[in-house]
Design a protein around this nucleic acid. Structure first.
Lengths: 345, 345
DNA sequence: GTATTCTAAGAAAACATTTACCCAATACAT
DNA sequence: ATGTATTGGGTAAATGTTTTCTTAGAATAC
């Protein structure tokens, strides 16, 4: 029948195919289509296959907004990270984003990654839950999310004061063990090149460092604690300064492998032997430096496990389980070639 | 009246306040509330203020899903970036994310940042448009977006073959000029440490390098082109290899400042003077290296302008303007302290 | 063969908004 | 004073889905 059918071709826009059309094509009601798609039980095999066939044939994609409005699930998780300067040089941030991304991919959920730089305007509406990255400078936003009762898990921060689940890494203990290693190797003049001290993890690493020294009864001059800001440039400056001073360190504990690497490079440039003259310890277990000039002694952070755990808890929260869970994961000291006994001088 | 009003308190959930309640509180119809919120003209000042007051008082936040379903605007822009290894050590990726984030913040739009690592499952439903980052390995996804007729602007890639707007940076010309500088300084033994050659920008920089040599009639051995993969570790390996060879270069053009910095460090370690013995040129104008041991001669990429331009075009596309725009922005050579005349040897 | 239970699937309400349509009231022109 | 624009704002349809309610028909029990 070659009749020019005016039909209902009034709409110009190439509007998406709806559940209604799928229903008509499959010869069932929209309710049945919906049931098939949400794999509810009690729908005959015959209809099921017909519906799925229709979906495939018409290329149907559910409208997420209608779905959500009608009370359906959302399948989008937010990851909130503050956009501080240098974030992308942080091995940590990189690993977080990557692991959350991969984790959600296996959960078949979308990731709403929110890196904010100025005053925040995160729309919580789009997400069913949030992974909140360690943020000292952003208590306000966390408070708002808590107030909205949005399912939320904070990572890499031990949140004591709030009714929020959190999964953290024991930065303090990790730093403590790293420092202890240096002390046990006989070093007394031990320096710490700290990270950006506006972050909690840098603070904790510093405090672990101090704790170990204190326990061992070792005292150091104030300038043996340098702020390296997690940046290589700053780390270089710090170590440059140190070696202009009268009292020179025999061991340096850096709050990141990036900084440790830079420090080692500087030392080598100056003809200072590592580890014979100066031992260096990093933090992160950044695989980038596995194949460097020498394997850096470092502290492994179980980022993967942290993210996995956090996503698991978040899912529980999303499905109604409200019990607050707090978890702190241990680090692991990895001995490389950048540390050795203090020389007897 | 202290009467226990059972009212309509049947629902347990702390459901959000709706437009209906705002309307009732302000003593107007929901249509009027909607009109005020979408600042349509023709609503009396008196009602406007009453509505806004009610909104403030009740803490009303529109339900984005209902809004969207009813044909309202979306205010979310997607940024798509492939999650290749080392992405976060790329100054470029960092700048893109940051600039897009800041740009959207001023436009009062949300950013749906999608960094994908495996097979892709980007949900276009959530966004009104997409900024698509230079991706060679991901033609498929771009095709899908084009097919869906989602407003889209590709950045940092000259897209010839598709009906898509794009804003690119003239990497080839930039590399050409950088190389020309070295040639004009009298260098003949010029090396290129390339970036990750699966990316278009690395390819273009390489081709600009070759072009300049060709024009000047300078020939170099094959191994004077080394793949540095945009990583410092790889750059170090490349230059290490070069200096084991018989024929040693007098100038090195690196496809990124990161790599240039690493190369300079290596040379200094080995006692090779920069720029007296070897000149080094980078690419990116990465501010991180402004305060390094010496200012690197480099090529400035107008990333900020590129993003601004791309967002402007995207907005036009979103509001119906369908004319395809293709723009290529010029780079700018910045002469630092890492280049000088070739010695007369 | 009739009554009862069970099952599959359709009809329709609900979700929160936008907007086309319409009507009342006011302003203006005759 | 009456008729005609103009303006402000209310009513209700429409958006695409989920889900409750309902019902037709089949299966089981008596």
């Amino acid at each position: 029948m070659s009749v020019l059918t005016p039909n209902n071709s009034e709409r110009a826009e190439p509007s998406a195919v709806t559940i209604k059309e799928v229903a008509r094509y499959a010869g069932v009601s929209i309710a049945t289509v919906s049931r098939v798609l949400n794999d509810s039980p009690s729908v005959k095999e015959k209809n099921k296959t017909r519906v799925l066939e229709a979906v495939r044939k018409l290329g149907y994609k559910p409208n997420v907004f209608a779905q959500r409005l009608a009370g359906g699930k959302l399948n989008v998780v937010g990851l909130i990270i503050p956009g501080y300067e240098g974030i992308f040089h942080s091995f940590y941030a990189q690993e977080i984003i990557k692991n959350v991304g991969l984790g959600l991919e296996t959960l078949k959920k979308d990731l709403f990654l929110h890196i904010f730089w100025g005053k925040d305007n995160f729309s919580s509406s789009y997400v069913e839950g949030v992974i909140f990255n360690d943020i000292i400078r952003n208590q306000d936003q966390l408070n708002r999310i808590i107030e909205e009762e949005l399912p939320c898990v904070v990572i890499n921060k031990k949140v004591e004061e709030f009714k929020v689940s959190s999964v953290a890494i024991d930065n303090e203990k990790g730093a403590e063990e790293a420092t202890k290693l240096l002390l046990e190797l006989g070093h007394k003049k031990v320096v710490h090149v700290a990270g950006d001290l506006t972050t909690q993890c840098a603070q904790e690493r510093l405090s672990g460092f101090k704790k170990s020294l204190e326990e061992a009864g070792v005292t150091i001059p104030d300038y043996f604690i340098q702020e390296g800001n997690f940046s290589r440039a700053q780390a270089r400056k710090a170590v440059e300064f140190l070696f202009t001073q009268h009292e020179k360190p025999t061991a340096i504990f850096c709050a990141s492998d990036d900084m440790a690497y830079e420090v080692i490079l500087y030392l080598l440039e100056k003809g200072v032997k590592v580890p014979q003259d100066v031992s260096v310890v990093g933090f992160d277990n950044n695989p980038q430096y596995l194949h460097g000039p020498l394997a850096i002694t470092t502290v492994h952070q179980p980022i993967n496990e942290m993210v996995t755990k956090a996503l698991k808890i978040l899912q529980e929260h999303i499905s109604g389980q409200t019990m607050v869970i707090k978890k702190v994961l241990p680090t692991r000291l990895i001995i490389g070639d950048s540390t050795t006994y203090a020389s007897k001088s």
